[in-house]
Amino acid sequence: MESGIVLPPEILGYFYNFPITNTLLVSWITIAVLTAVSILATRKIKLVPGGLQNLFEIIIDFVYTTVSDLAGDKKTKVFFPIVATFFFFILFGNLLGLFPGFGTITYKGEVLLRSMNSDLNMTLALALTSAFLTHAFALRYLGILGYLKKWFTLNPIFLFVGILELVGEFTKVVSLSFRLFGNIFAGEVVLATISGIFAFLVPLPFYFLEIIVGFVQAAVFMMLTLVFMVLLSEKHAAEH
């Protein structure tokens, strides 16, 4: 109960000097689950799909068409895996966090499992990765000069706008990370609180809500990353 309101992740132990937190453990579990599921889905891949393959085909086809609609055919091949990985990682992390055992099983007095994205380390890492890759792609597609022109021009008004946008790049990271963290952390707290009040049936609507929130947050993170990538790697965007 009390653990639900603790902001930093609980440290379960140290591997040499490396702290193993419960959220890190869950992120590893998430990776393992995703790997297992994707291998299962594509192990006996057929032209006429069935079961898991069908499900993943629908998701991937949807994400792929969304990316190619926004980014165009050439950049889609580069953007798609990153954007889709954000989606799958966050979605599976969020959904996994709703399983029984999360927040209830303890290990040496600490909560063993805690939803991956209720740790700012995780969401900030994702946001930083997203921002880094966005700028890396901008550099790649625009060249150094084109990239710098986005922020600095001789026109004083646009120079000011450019500086504002530079600040905006940092706020993007903050908003991306804190949006995801806030939503999932709040969900955890709500679930813990409701379960504390009455553990049977009453938390169910909140679980449904959290499923939706988990999906929406994954989709939002994916879409925002995609849009940032497309906008920043587009030519002439600064001349508006």
Binding site: P9, F18, P19, T21, L24, S27, W28, I31, T85, F89, D119, N121, M122, L124, A125, L126, L128, T129
Partner: peptide, 10 residues
Amino acid sequence: VLLLAQVVNF
């Protein structure tokens, strides 16, 4: 360190 670990995870 945790930040880096999560980036690597990703």
